[in-house]
């Protein structure tokens, strides 16, 4: 590296999609940086870079967080889940199936964040109203679908007993 500054590296130990991860990282690295650049988990997208659009949403101990502004060290000792961790052994979750059935994605760039925000909601609550879903996804911007099929898909997944 041509940079002459010396950077104090710090330890990060956490689980990502159920696997133990131990890394030496720069303190300024965001969780999105670590997932995308160090772990190659590029399913997590960065769009606004300012915690506004929700594209970078991942789950931290089951709670949705914006990984673009969260320092990776905050994940120490905690469980991180990303879009890559949803399908198991090639079988999609009911939510992912519902996204196909309702065409709840087009360009796909908000999709990972939508799926993670909706997954957190579905894991927390079994009986969902349309209003519950709309409020839970309020922080996730989609420019393609008009949100209608996304909300429909989440409701359908809730029905299917996610």
């Amino acid at each position: 590296m041509p940079e002459s500054r010396t950077i104090q590296l710090v330890d990060l130990a956490c689980t990502v999609n159920g696997r133990n991860v131990a890394l030496r990282i720069e303190p300024r690295e965001t969780l999105a940086d670590v997932l995308r650049e160090r772990l190659g988990l590029t399913g997590t997208k960065v769009s606004c870079d300012a915690q506004v659009c929700g594209a970078c949403t991942v789950l931290l101990d089951g709670q949705p967080v914006s990984s673009c502004t969260l320092l990776a060290v905050e994940a120490s000792g905690r469980a991180v889940r990303t879009v890559e961790g949803l399908a198991r052994d090639g079988s999609l979750t009911p939510l992912q199936e519902a996204f196909i059935e309702h065409a709840a994605f087009q360009c796909g760039f908000c999709t990972s964040g939508m799926l993670m925000a909706a997954t957190a909601l579905l894991e927390e609550q079994r009986h969902l109203s349309r209003e519950d879903v709309v409020h839970a996804l309020e922080g996730n911007v989609c420019r393609c679908t008009g949100y209608v099929p996304i909300v429909d898909a989440v409701l359908a997944a809730a029905e299917a007993g996610q």
Partner: peptide, 23 residues
């Protein structure tokens, strides 16, 4: 007929490669 999209699996599992994802 509403056949499913060609890009469904890639986009729903995070495997679709946008330019920032190319390493």
């Amino acid at each position: 007929r509403s056949v499913p999209r060609r890009d469904a699996l890639a986009k729903l599992t995070g495997r679709a490669r946008y330019v920032a994802d190319l390493d």
